[in-house]
Simulated scan of single mutants.
Amino acid sequence: MTDTANLPTPAGDDFDRAIGFTLPARHARGRMARLGPVLDQILSAHAYPACIERVLAEALTLTALLGSTMKGGEGQMTMQVQAARGIVSLLVADYKGGELRGYVQYDAEKLSRLGKNPTLSALFNQAYLAITFDQATTGERYQGIVPLDGESIAAAAESYFDQSEQIPSLVRLGTMRGDDGKLIAGGMLLQYLPEGEEGRERLHAREVQYPEWDHVEALGSTMGVDELTDPAVPLETLVWRLFNEEDEVRVVSDALLVRGCRCDIDYITQVIAKFPEEDRAEMADENGIITVDCAFCSTKFPVRLSDFTSPTL
């Protein structure tokens, strides 16, 4: 078999990576990811309470796991949770070319009444989970939308795969505080593809007994949050710990993760320019400044009304 423990791994702490692997004899594939400095950069742009940080951290980890599966490393994957009545009304996380970003909209006053560790159902009331893949190479878009079920982001993701993709899946997500008090997030995704990596005839896979998947799922269930979030243990070593008795394990990809926000003053100016002059005037303050606040990075972009004034001939 392939000894993943002897594959090249980063020196020092293993952060901000996602790796993919396959178990050919078991018709299964998997991914592992761990976020550290990238997660801190995203969260530090906001003053989120701890419970909101944890939910967003797990959502970003899931986004890294799914987004890094896109062929060629191109395209965009977006995870969105919307709740009309929830304390959290919107959660968005997306991945594009290794870049991660995300934010949460919530009612701070209502959240303060819930205590320190509210459940997912308490945060999101009758919410919907949408996962969208925009393929850069083909221009195709795929979106699945299901009710947000389960008491964790991991459980909601498993429910999504069961309902939308109909692929037997195991998802593990978790967070911990490092010695410096900063949040670390880790995750694992395992999926069974009855006809191999292409996933042919995957529909209704749960209606048939697959001993190969039962075995993979049982091993994957032993993976703890403490291991997924331990930067001293390379992700390849975690794969080795789980599957060292398999005939073959193939590590097929390695994606480096960075914080990325695609807000751009030129693009923002172009968008505002499309509004009628009277609408732009209403947007501006007493100094003739339109301030646009990026929800992802909390950066404020000032645009002057005078920038849209036609030059005098």
Rank of each mutant, 00 (worst) to 15 (best):
M77W: 08
L65S: 04
L23W: 02
L23M: 03
L228T: 01
L170V: 15
L56N: 00
P234V: 01
V258I: 13
L183M: 14
F275P: 01
R304F: 10
R304Y: 10
K96F: 07
V88G: 04
A157H: 07
S164G: 09
I268W: 03
L111I: 05
S306A: 14
D179P: 06
T132S: 13
P234Y: 05
A57R: 05
Q41Y: 07
A281N: 13
A33E: 02
G174S: 10
L256Y: 12
T137P: 00
E195H: 07
M223R: 07
H27F: 12
P302Y: 12
A127L: 03
G115K: 09
A50R: 10
L114Y: 02
R85H: 14
R26N: 08
L235I: 08
E207L: 06
V171W: 15
D230H: 05
A255V: 08
S310H: 11
G196M: 04
E165F: 13
I272Y: 11
Q163D: 11
A255L: 05
I42M: 10
F124N: 03
N117D: 15
M188R: 02
L129G: 02
S169R: 04
E248S: 09
A122Y: 02
Y95H: 14
A57Q: 04
A136L: 10
I167N: 10
G288E: 01
E236R: 10
Q126Y: 06
L114M: 14
E99R: 15
W240P: 00
L193I: 08
N287V: 02
A93P: 03
R202A: 09
R206K: 13
R280W: 02
V303D: 03
I19E: 01
I52L: 02
S221G: 14
Q166G: 05
L62K: 06
R241L: 11
E217K: 13
D247G: 12
P231K: 03
M1G: 15
T138G: 06
L173F: 08
P231L: 04
T61G: 04
E236A: 10
M70V: 12
F308T: 03
I272C: 15
D226V: 12
D214L: 15
G220Q: 06
S159M: 13
T269M: 04
E201C: 15
T137H: 11
